[in-house]
Simulated scan of single mutants.
Amino acid sequence: MASSAELSVAVVAGEVSGDLLAGRLLGGLRAQLPGARFHGIGGPNMARHGFVSDWPLERLTVRGLFEIIPRYRDIKGIQNQLREQLLAERPAVFIGADYPGFNLGLEMQLKAAGIPTVHYIGPQIWAWRGGRIKKIIKAVSHMLVIFPFEEEIYRRAGVPVTYVGHPLAEMIPLQPDEAAARRQLGLPEDANVVTLMPGSRMGELKHNVAAFVGAAKLLRQRDHSLRFVAPMAGEKQRQYFLELVAQAGLRDVEIMLTDGQSHTAIAAADAVLVASGTASLEVALFKKPMVIAYKMMRASWEIMRHMGYQPWIGLPNILAREFLVPELLQNAASPEALAEAMWRQLSDVPGRLRLVQRFTDMHHSLLRDSAQESAAAVMQVIAASSTRL
């Protein structure tokens, strides 16, 4: 293998969650390749390890099937430019951090040209679009997966695979400190706290905020002592949240908005109303009761609701293989239904204790040194490629 100073490693993360995953991996990889050039497309977590983003992460971030249409030309142009750049550069490895719609197509072309490719994390072919395994076989030299059951799926398909654990399981303590989180937010330690997490993307906020805040209003009518907290991903999201609340006529609902601090807001909560996605897994790792809800553009929903293979969409329920917590989707996610489901989560003390144990077991199953495990797998791919040269 060439010295690390002569190597380049290309990485693409298209969303905040991918930046988190890739940041962990690059942290482990930097120790192995101290002089290597890390570049591609990524965010602040990756930048902490000397990564240089050739395009802003925000140029790729989009949600939904139809929402991508007006952005397609720009995103496709970036993909084409990056492909030509990497074919000329020939990095030691290309790592696609999630974002399969963009990365798998790029990986297929790079792998065909002899550039080894690693995909981190495995696309959820167990949930929908299982036919993508054919493309994955052509595109991916090595797959890194974050859920234990995924390893066998890719192994059966003939795709080299390593289970590396979920980075969130390392970041979140096994026994979160609720009292400390409340002190940090300036909340009384004996307060009744509900955290609202309608999403970090603008599209998620557009479709979820009115229902989430409407549910908060109904809950406050049941229990005037309830405190509501909503972490904001940035100033743009904060302003849009407030705009949507005003449009819905819900300005009278008192909600503490925090700048980031999503983990603190979850740790402080008695229960969480959360949009489906990685955030629901974070709530589970904090051992909190929750209601999972999600709304999206109607056209996207009509297509996607027929494409799933499983009865669950929330990661805690998928991992448990049962409805551990309620899921209310699209039209079912009305303020009234969300408030009723949240009230049951707040009131069911024995159920809350059972959830703590189930979520603790789930936490242990996902706990690995993901930075070291993923970096070791990438180093094996680089070594195998250099041996063949």
Score class of each variant (00 low, 15 high):
314 G>H: 03
313 I>S: 02
293 A>H: 03
207 H>K: 07
337 A>F: 00
94 F>V: 10
202 M>C: 00
166 H>D: 06
274 V>N: 02
309 Y>D: 07
102 F>I: 09
378 V>C: 04
149 F>W: 14
354 R>V: 04
368 R>A: 09
129 R>G: 00
364 H>Y: 14
276 S>G: 03
24 R>P: 00
274 V>R: 00
265 A>P: 03
219 L>V: 06
261 Q>W: 06
261 Q>M: 14
341 A>T: 05
218 L>S: 03
207 H>C: 03
88 A>L: 13
191 A>P: 02
174 L>N: 10
62 V>I: 15
175 Q>W: 09
208 N>I: 02
248 A>G: 08
124 Q>E: 13
105 G>D: 04
102 F>G: 02
274 V>M: 03
184 Q>P: 00
219 L>F: 11
76 K>A: 14
113 A>R: 05
301 W>K: 01
191 A>M: 08
254 E>C: 02
330 Q>D: 07
184 Q>N: 06
98 D>G: 05
313 I>C: 01
124 Q>P: 00
179 A>Q: 15
43 G>Q: 11
2 A>E: 10
184 Q>L: 11
374 S>I: 07
162 T>K: 04
296 M>G: 09
349 V>I: 14
171 M>H: 12
284 A>I: 11
109 Q>W: 03
63 R>V: 15
157 A>W: 06
320 A>D: 04
213 V>T: 03
24 R>F: 12
172 I>D: 04
116 P>Y: 11
228 F>I: 05
61 T>G: 10
206 K>M: 11
82 L>W: 10
309 Y>P: 00
202 M>T: 11
223 D>G: 04
229 V>W: 01
209 V>W: 04
20 L>Y: 15
272 V>M: 08
172 I>V: 12
